[in-house]
């Protein structure tokens, strides 16, 4: 996948491994760190079934390259009642993509996710690692504009 582990990454990985009596327990935290660098975990060249099992079991691992901003719309019960379906439709239209797709400019990926644990401030979307809560039509439009201009 054209990504070379830097010395910095290796040092960080080593530090994570020391947290556990068995080094293989660090697999998931290490994959999360790796994904921060690469935006996804490539399956090509993966010859270890345990790693493949983990990357397909946990939803936070992207199996395809993701856009610069990964918009993850919560669609569970509290967000649903607060307008998540309308929010998703708005994003679909604005970005002209469906769930699971990435815009041609590589800027945005749109996904649906389950409960993010922020139900008191529904509806919620997560952009990469960050939560945006209590969203309205106006706020989500502004959010897209802000992200576009952060280029």
């Amino acid at each position: 996948m054209g990504f070379k582990l830097t010395e910095e990454f290796k040092a960080k990985a080593e530090k994570i491994c020391t947290q556990y009596p068995r080094r293989d327990a660090a697999l998931i935290p290490l994959l999360l760190e790796l994904q921060k660098e690469t935006s996804y975990i490539a399956e090509e060249g993966m010859d270890y079934s345990r790693v493949k099992a983990v990357t397909t079991f946990y939803t936070m691992f992207n199996r395809e390259p993701a856009g610069k901003y990964h918009l993850q719309v919560c669609r569970n019960i509290s967000c649903h009642m607060a307008g998540a379906p309308g929010l998703l439709e708005r994003l679909r239209k604005k970005l002209a993509i469906a769930e699971g797709e990435t815009t041609k400019d590589g800027l945005f990926t749109l996904s649906c996710v389950e409960c993010l644990g922020a139900c008191g401030l529904a509806p919620v979307i997560q952009v990469n690692d960050k939560y945006f809560e209590n969203l309205t039509a106006e706020k989500v439009d502004a959010l897209l504009e802000n992200l576009r201009h952060e280029l």
């Binding site: 068995r22 293989d24 327990a25 998931i28 999360l32 983990v54 996710v113 389950e114 409960c115």
Partner: peptide
């Protein structure tokens, strides 16, 4: 890394061991 089931305590242990 995103799995509701890991809130169940033995699934959590599996996950914490890297499975």
């Amino acid at each position: 890394a995103g799995a509701y089931i890991c809130g169940e305590e033995t699934a959590l242990l599996q996950s914490l061991e890297g499975y």
